[in-house]
């Protein structure tokens, strides 16, 4: 099943122009994050007050911020922070969600009830509010930010995983594996989960976008990365004070956030369309 899915999905994906643009954006974004030191000669955290609030020039194409730091350098290094928050946050959610969701779907009964009601409670909060509450409890900072984003994304993963596990667990080959006498764990890991990968991959891609946006939002409120870390949301928040005098301070970090979020969303959309067999003939 998985083997058959890949080539046809790839073909469908390549035909989808939006998806290709999304991939290009994500690749660019990841490349910028990885190559940061090679892309700018400036130190993103070292102020030079003589250049404070300077508008874009040839030497500093995006201008300088309120402490004279090069905004381009801050955005480039900021990509690392966002990407890290996006990946680690989603990673935490992925691990937590897959474990809880598969237990819930596979065993059913009271295990299912307890886990899913707990997830329902978490889903009852608006997701940003939940992240905000978690960070407030843990305290501001980048590590806690990633934890908060991870925790608040667990319910969506666990629900998707549960649904997929439910649809797969009564298939003949699972029955067969059970008849042979394989353990529950082995059936789950070796036979069920591999066949649930498509929706998980799609969700993970989309959640990276959500994670980046939430991280920016929390940093905007001062709960995320602390100065002088070049975090896009924090840059946007600080630049806001100079919106009238020096609009470039807030504009460029805002565009950077938009770029990252849009890239992952387009990528995720494309993946969904490509991996969903029901859309095969459209």
């Amino acid at each position: 099943m998985v083997q058959n899915l890949v080539p046809s999905s790839l073909r469908r994906f390549a035909k989808n122009r939006k998806a290709v643009v999304g991939v290009a954006m994500v690749v660019l974004y990841v490349a910028v994050a990885l190559l940061a030191p090679a892309l700018t000669p400036y130190n993103p955290t070292k102020p030079d007050l003589n250049l404070a609030l300077q508008a874009p020039t040839l030497g500093h194409p995006l201008g300088n911020d309120e402490l004279g730091r090069d905004i381009l350098a801050r955005i480039i290094y900021g990509a690392r922070i966002s990407l890290m928050v996006g990946l680690v946050g989603t990673g935490i959610a992925l691990v937590g969600g897959v474990i809880l969701g598969s237990l819930s779907g596979y065993f059913g009964g009271w295990v299912d009830t307890v886990i899913m009601r707990a997830m329902d409670i978490m889903l009852a909060f608006p997701s940003f509010l939940l992240a905000l509450a978690i960070v407030s409890i843990l305290g501001a900072g980048l590590m806690n930010l990633m934890l908060a984003i991870g925790i608040f994304s667990i319910p969506s993963f666990s629900r998707v995983v549960r649904g997929s596990v439910l649809s797969v667990k009564n298939q003949d080959y699972v029955e067969a594996a059970r008849a042979v006498g394989l353990s529950d764990l082995r059936i789950l890991v070796a036979h069920i989960l591999p066949n649930c990968m498509a929706p998980i991959i799609v969700l993970a891609t989309m959640r990276v976008a959500t994670a980046i946006l939430t991280a920016s939002g929390l940093s905007f409120l001062g709960l995320g990365a602390q100065p002088p870390t070049p975090e896009w949301g924090a840059m946007l928040s600080n630049g806001r004070e100079y919106l009238r005098a020096a609009p470039h301070l807030a504009t460029f970090p805002g565009l950077a956030i938009m770029f990252g979020v849009l890239g992952f969303n387009l990528f995720g959309d494309g993946l969904r369309d490509a991996l969903d067999p029901r859309l095969k003939n459209r």
């Binding site: 070292k46 102020p47 007050l49 402490l67 100065p227 002088p228 600080n238």
Partner: peptide, 10 residues
């Protein structure tokens, strides 16, 4: 104040 603190930090 916040900007000054950041400059002092640096």
């Amino acid at each position: 104040d916040r900007q000054v603190s950041e400059a002092v930090q640096a």
